[in-house]
């Protein structure tokens, strides 16, 4: 992989990026960020000095770096048991509410948002939901807004996920939410679902929240794994403070809460529910 001196220089590079752009990756976990920076240097054939020079002088290049550093992999209905739980437990409990506020933090290209919209639509809840979806990557948000994905590469995986999550629903239900154009290799979310979620460019690490609402449900899946523990805790605190008591947080299947905030959430299946305990400032 690389030697220890190189690792130090990557840290220096993050400092440069912090100084001359609005982004701060200093508290991302070392392991992944090193590999991403290495990949950028390979892809653009730059050595570290050239990379630093280009970052200082070329604003458009900085955006490309941000795209390359952030991980954008996602699927429709990733981890079927999670969606099954949302369907059978979480949304049933929210059914009688007049309004449901949902935030997808780090929504990438939007597959999770549309998975959720499809589920809500199936349950007849879509109209009373207010859905915000945020991400740091402009390019991902453009894809998310279009709701159009590659067909061949994705379709079977997405359909399998759906069927694993909802074995009682016919697969036509799933197909009904997409316009499929095999000749163009596209599967596009039906216009009726487009525009129901508001996609907003937002840096979870540095910017204040772009809304005043509190939320019933926050999705933030496989985002925190790229942060170090200190940053993780700060983001969890943000989520905690912006959730209604009893509201829930959906993390990635192999993410967990450590440290102080562990006591502020109760784990119920794959979701973390905000408990309503007091906490004191010392």
């Amino acid at each position: 992989m690389q030697n220890r001196e190189e690792r130090q220089t990557y840290k220096d590079y993050l400092q440069v990026l912090k100084e001359c752009s609005p982004y701060d990756f200093c508290e991302y976990s070392d392991n992944s960020i090193d590999r991403r920076i290495q990949k950028i240097m390979q892809d653009y054939r730059l050595n570290l000095d050239e990379l630093i020079y280009k970052t200082r002088t070329d604003e458009e290049f900085v955006e490309l770096v941000v795209e390359a550093i952030t991980v954008n992999t996602t699927e429709l209905f990733r981890d079927p048991p999670v969606w099954k739980h949302l369907y059978e437990k979480v949304y049933w409990a929210l059914k009688s509410r007049p309004k449901i506020n949902i935030w997808h933090a780090g929504c990438s290209s939007g597959q999770e948002v549309y998975s959720n919209l499809i589920l809500l639509d199936i349950m007849g809840l879509a109209d009373k939901c207010e859905i915000y979806a945020t991400d740091i990557s402009k390019k991902s948000l453009e894809v998310a807004n279009s709701g159009s994905y590659k067909y061949n590469f994705n379709f079977q995986k997405y359909l399998n996920n759906f069927q694993d999550a909802f074995p009682n629903l016919p697969k036509e239900k799933f197909l009904g939410y997409f316009d499929i154009d095999e000749s163009k290799d596209r599967m596009s979310v039906k216009p009726s679902l487009l525009g129901k979620a508001k996609f907003i460019k937002h840096d979870l690490v540095k910017q204040p929240l772009p809304f005043y609402n509190k939320f019933d449900l926050i999705f933030c899946r496989n985002v925190l794994i790229y942060f170090n523990s200190g940053l993780q805790s700060r983001i969890i605190q943000k989520f905690h403070d912006t959730l209604f008591p009893g509201g829930a947080m959906v993390l990635g299947t192999h993410e967990s809460i450590n440290g102080f905030f562990k006591t502020k959430f109760a784990k119920n299946g794959p979701v973390y529910e905000r408990t309503n305990t007091f906490h004191f400032k010392y």
């Binding site: 070392d30 392991n31 992944s32 992999t73 192999h254």
Partner: peptide, 21 residues
């Protein structure tokens, strides 16, 4: 290593997961 995640070992003896390509 959990399915659908990469698994890395870190200098401090902890495990890091990633959903990279």
């Amino acid at each position: 290593a959990p399915s659908n995640y990469h698994l890395f070992l870190e200098l401090d003896g902890s495990i890091a997961l990633s959903t990279e390509e």
